[in-house]
Design a protein around this nucleic acid. Structure first.
Length: 1025
RNA sequence: GGGCAGUUAGCUCAGUUUGGUUAGAGCAUCUGGUUUACACCCAGAAGGUCACAGGUUCGAGUCCCGUACUGCCCACCA
């Protein structure tokens, strides 16, 4: 191959095709247990099959791939298990919505089987697309092991987990208030409920006290925003100790007034005044009511004419409403809790279609809205509606149907969390599982410490069905006989419904499994997180004792986003301990979120989710990956500003909240339409697509291109390459410098990745490759490459350094590095091994096998610091000359002459580097040394390293030079003053001696620089006259 | 209401763990460049009271207290 045919611009698309194929064909990412290696395992957080991946996923997956690839290169047996999640609610909702949009049918129209069938089709389509996206990103997963959460292996794990929980008595059935969508007749999750303020009312109702005694009120007044629910009231609550409660709130407010800002204190004061007034007016009544409640007294529930008790409960806040609160356990979450505490009956008023049922008496059959009107009218007539206030209230609306949500009491399966939650807390507290960054551990622990039981049923058709069968009117003996000897069957009696629950571990039970009885299977499916909780061990084959479980489990690392720490991470930990007795993973890294230019998170509904494939098409996968790594810091979310680029005229079209969801956009400049990622119709798709552009991707692409060209340069200069052994004595300063810097970078990058500081790793590599390797080393070595006598040394070092850079970068930018590395291998089948252990051991020696070549070892810190400071002298002088040139507008081709006043040690350093100064600054150094004096007219730069006099008498712009000097002097004077002041104060006495000495020295240097500058300025002024 | 972040150059962000020379980068801007690796480039310049107010300290972007604003999470709203 002719190296000169390589294009000047790196072509990511060709590389991606070539190497993705190469990797796959060579099975590089496939992993099997290997006793000779240590395992390193990651399971992917399975993306929902709801839709395609967006940049948030790309971030998650890129970070995992960086870890996996770097561990693989370090010699671990690495396994990254890919897969997707069935995402019950979200996926079913998506498919249902589409079904309705396209065919105007609901799920009830087509039935369970047909709907599930359609969801499977959807899943197949998106799983394929997601896997393709992951591959496009360069993810090095073992694709043979791709899993879906409804796969048979996962289903088996789910059944075993459930069975174990059931057998140990950790599963029970209870009641739970769900968000009922009366329009869709389904429960919806909290996430699918949104709150909206409406103009509502606050109605005050009188409930007559039964047989009031002297001094007691005739009525108890309650206030409500939902009067119709009074039909289901089973108590009225009053605070057990209203006086104490008032005291407590008063104390709180007083503390607040004392300890906060003026504005807040004012508000608190107003609240306190109101409270005190209220206390005066209301306390006697509340005390009386509390006593009546303690006495077991009752009130009559109007309209229903039912006696209901007065109860004492802390839920009744003396400072709110009337101080008394009506309790409707079946239709309000808080009242439900009160009902449980107080052992109250729970009267369900609602039918699934949103009408009131027989429990509502004469209001049965009416929808909620009409019940309210009628109830209010009837109460009014009875004189029991005493007051109506206008009030803005928040109501819950279903996101899917945009109709009001009714809280609805439903049967629900739960897992007891007391013990399970504790195991998950212990794991993090004792360090078995470490969460990074550590601040996220708090939320995890707080959430688990509530130990709230986990409701695991969902009223859906898409998911793992709960493996419970009901059997009515059966004797225990019959069950014993039917399931004799069956260890995979467990049953329990439910006294509430007077039926048996039968749980089966593996097979589905037939209707007639118990002779003479009909088994009915539970309709509900399990919460998606139930199967997700098992993901790490289920994908490796649990409950079977597979080789994979034995070798890869527990896994090494989980990388995920912060919003599912509780829902997912915590549950994986507790499920893993419960099922396997082991932690699921050692480390958890919580990554930042990708935000758009408005600081909003990316989501499907907002339409700001960008398909990574579109970025890859424009910039290449490596650019996307590098940009992501570069931006992934510990504390910041990643803000990515993207805009459209018109495919016709190249104009940038700003992405706005308005146009970001459009299938096509009109370019304001050339007035032509282009399509976007949302294009669906054939007509839209036929338009040229406007790529998304963003500064961060451009930076990353430029970096990839820089690397490409630096590599191209190296390869273009490998004629006659034959690595030789070079020992320390043959190395020049720049060689020692680049080698020691390289060793430092290896250390820094390795350490950064160990602690998940991706940005740090990417920055270290970017800066090193661009600023040090390209801008300095490549420029400096050019002369030697063209000199036959020095060529081999130069080539040996160059190849060794480039090879190491490529390998360091490979986890982040796998395609371009593979592309270059494979080519480099052709030119340089043998590499030099760099050893930089210590000053006298710095050498480069041939190493026979390219594949096995290790990273250079770390070197002595003091040595590398010395080299760095020596090289800095050169850099400073070079910069000074360039600055003088630029200031004086000397044309680049004009060679200049300069002299240099500096100490002997600086001369020694610089003497061998004269040619570099010619090459890099176009400057010939005529003389250097401590005694050198400035020519009569010159451009000068003074630095701590020495004074550079650029002899340009013929070209000099005296005014520019004077202006520069004046500015320089003003700056130095400022520093000198501040340092003198510092040294005159307490600093000299109290600061450590070394620091003081450093300051003194620095002051001396500044003074000397000042003197030189002033002298030069004077000279210039004389010259002008 | 509770919790967690963030606020540094026109823009997007590093730097805060462990206080110590003149606070860094990229983009944008300005000046000059087709030096055969790279114009997706090279050289140079300009640009910052480190949100505000206090405190600790010889010394604060960095530590402590408070305020404001922004974002996220959790809880709740008869």
């Amino acid at each position: 191959m002719d190296i000169n045919e390589l294009p000047k611009q790196y072509d990511p698309a060709a590389s991606q095709r070539r190497w993705a194929k190469f990797w796959e064909e060579n099975h590089f990412f496939e992993s099997d247990p290997n006793p000779n290696k240590k395992p390193y395992t990651i399971v992917i957080p399975p993306p929902n099959v709801t839709g395609a991946l967006h940049l948030g996923h790309a971030l998650n997956d890129t970070l995992q791939d960086i870890m996996i690839r770097s561990r693989r290169m370090q010699g671990f047996e690495t396994l990254w298990v890919p897969g997707v999640d069935h995402a019950g609610i979200a996926t079913q909702a998506t498919v249902e919505k589409r079904l309705f949009e396209r065919e105007k049918k609901t799920r009830h129209d087509i039935g369970r089987e047909a709907l599930v069938q359609r969801i499977w089709e959807w899943k197949d389509q998106y799983q394929e697309r997601i896997i393709a996206q992951l591959k496009a990103l360069g993810c090095s997963c073992d694709w043979r092991r791709t899993r879906f959460t409804l796969d048979p292996v996962c289903a088996k794990a789910v059944r075993h987990f459930f069975f174990k929980l059931f057998s140990e008595g950790l599963i029970y059935r209870g009641k739970r208030l769900v968000n009922w969508d009366t329009h869709l007749q389904t429960a919806v999750s909290d996430d699918e409920v949104f709150h909206t303020p409406i103009d509502g009312h606050f109605w005050y109702l009188h409930y007559p006290v039964i047989d009031p005694k002297p001094g007691e009120p005739e009525f108890v007044t309650v206030a409500t925003t939902r009067p119709e629910t009074m039909l289901g009231d089973t108590a009225v609550a009053v605070h057990p100790e209203p006086a104490k409660e008032f005291d407590r709130i008063e104390a709180e407010l007083r503390a607040k007034i004392a300890g906060s800002s003026e504005k807040e204190a004012e508000e608190a004061q107003a609240a306190l005044d109101a409270l005190l007034k209220r206390r005066e007016e209301l306390l006697p009544l509340l005390v009386t009511l509390a006593e009546m409640a303690a006495d077991g007294r009752q009130v009559t529930l109007p309209l229903m004419n039912r006696p209901i008790p007065l109860v004492r409960d802390v839920w009744a806040k003396p400072e709110l409403g009337t101080g008394c609160v009506k309790i409707t356990p079946a239709h309000d979450p808080n009242d439900y809790e009160v009902g449980k505490r107080q052992n109250l009956p729970m009267i369900n008023l609602l039918e699934r279609d949103g009408r009131y049922n027989a429990n509502a008496g004469k209001y049965a059959g009416l929808p909620v809205k009409q019940v309210r009107e009628k109830v209010l009218a009837d109460l009014e007539e009875l004189g029991l509606l005493v007051k109506t206030e206008d009030r803005t209230i928040e109501i819950s609306m279903s996101d899917r149907s945009k109709t009001p949500i009714e809280p609805f009491l439903n049967d629900q399966w739960f897992i007891k969390m007391e013990h399970l939650a504790q195991t998950a807390m212990d794991a993090v507290e004792d360090g078995s599982v470490t969460i990074h960054p550590s601040r996220y551990a708090k939320g995890y622990l707080d959430w688990l410490s509530e130990k709230r039981d986990w409701p695991i049923g969902r009223q859906l058709w898409w998911g793992h069905r709960i493996p419970i069968w009901y059997c009515d009117a059966v004797e225990e003996q019959e069950l014993k006989e039917a399931f004799a000897g069956r260890e995979d069957i467990s049953y329990r009696f439910d006294s509430e419904k007077n039926q048996w629950w039968i749980c089966s571990q593996t097979e589905d039970l037939k209707e007639d499994a118990v002779p003479g009885h009909k088994l009915i299977r539970e309709e509900d499916v399990l919460d998606t997180w139930f199967s997700s909780a098992l993901w790490p061990h289920s994908v490796l084959g649990w409950p079977d004792a597979t080789d994979a479980m034995g070798y890869y489990y527990p896994t090494s690392l989980l990388i995920t986003s912060r919003d599912i720490i509780t829902l997912w991470v915590a549950r994986m930990v507790l499920a893993s301990y419960f099922n396997t007795g082991k932690r699921p993973f050692k480390d958890v890294f919580i990554h930042p979120k990708i935000l758009d230019k408005y600081g909003e998170g990316m989501s499907k509904t907002k339409g700001n989710g960008i398909d990574p494939v579109f970025v890859i098409e424009k910039f290449g996968a490596d650019s996307l990956r590098f940009a992501i790594a570069y931006l992934t810091t510990e504390s910041q979310d990643v803000r990515l500003s993207l805009d459209f680029e018109c495919p016709y005229c190249g104009a940038t079209v700003e992405q706005t909240k308005k146009n970001r969801t459009l299938p096509k956009i009109l370019c304001p400049k050339c007035r032509k339409e282009f399509s976007t990622q949302w294009a669906e119709t054939d007509e839209d798709k036929a338009l040229a697509r406007g790529p998304l552009v963003g500064e961060r991707f451009e930076v990353a692409r430029n970096f990839c291109n820089k690397l490409w060209n630096a590599s191209r340069f190296v390869m273009m200069n490998l004629e006659g390459y034959q690595p030789i052994k070079i020992d320390a004595s043959q190395l020049l300063l720049e060689d020692r410098w680049i080698l020691s810097r390289l060793a430092e970078v290896i250390q820094a990058v390795t350490a950064s990745l160990e602690s998940f500081r991706f940005s740090e790793a990417a920055r270290a590599l970017y800066d090193f490759a661009w600023d040090e390797f390209c801008s300095f080393y490549l420029e400096m070595i050019k002369g030697r490459l063209f000199d036959q006598a020095q060529k081999q040394t130069a080539q040996t070092i160059l190849v060794a350094v480039l090879d190491t850079i490529l390998r360091l970068l490979h986890p982040i930018t796998p395609f371009v590095t593979e592309e270059v590395w494979q080519r480099l291998k052709e030119f340089a089948p043998t590499r030099g091994l760099i050893s930089v252990k210590a000053a006298d051991a710095v050498c480069v020696a041939p190493w026979p096998t390219v594949e096995e070549i290790p990273f250079p070892e770390l070197l002595d810190k003091a040595y590398s610091e010395k080299i760095a400071s020596q090289f800095a002298v050169f850099q400073e002088i070079l910069r000074s000359i360039r600055e003088a040139r630029a200031r004086q507008n000397v044309p680049p081709k004009t060679e200049i002459h300069a002299t240099l006043r500096c100490e002997e040690r600086v001369c020694e350093l610089l003497d061998p580097m004269r040619s570099a100064l010619v090459k890099m600054a176009g400057a010939v150094i005529d003389d250097m040394g401590p005694e050198v004096t400035a020519p009569p007219l010159c451009a000068t730069v003074v630095s701590p390293q020495g004074e550079v006099y650029v002899d340009i008498a013929g070209l000099i712009d005296i005014d520019a030079e004077i202006a520069k000097k004046e500015k320089e002097i003003a700056k130095i004077v400022g520093f000198v003053k501040s340092k003198e002041a510092k040294l005159a104060g307490g600093f000299a006495e109290k600061a450590p001696a070394a620091v003081v000495e450093k300051e003194r020295q620095s002051l001396e240097d500044l003074k000397a620089q000042l003197a030189s500058n002033e002298e030069m300025l004077a000279k210039l002024r004389r010259a002008r006259q």
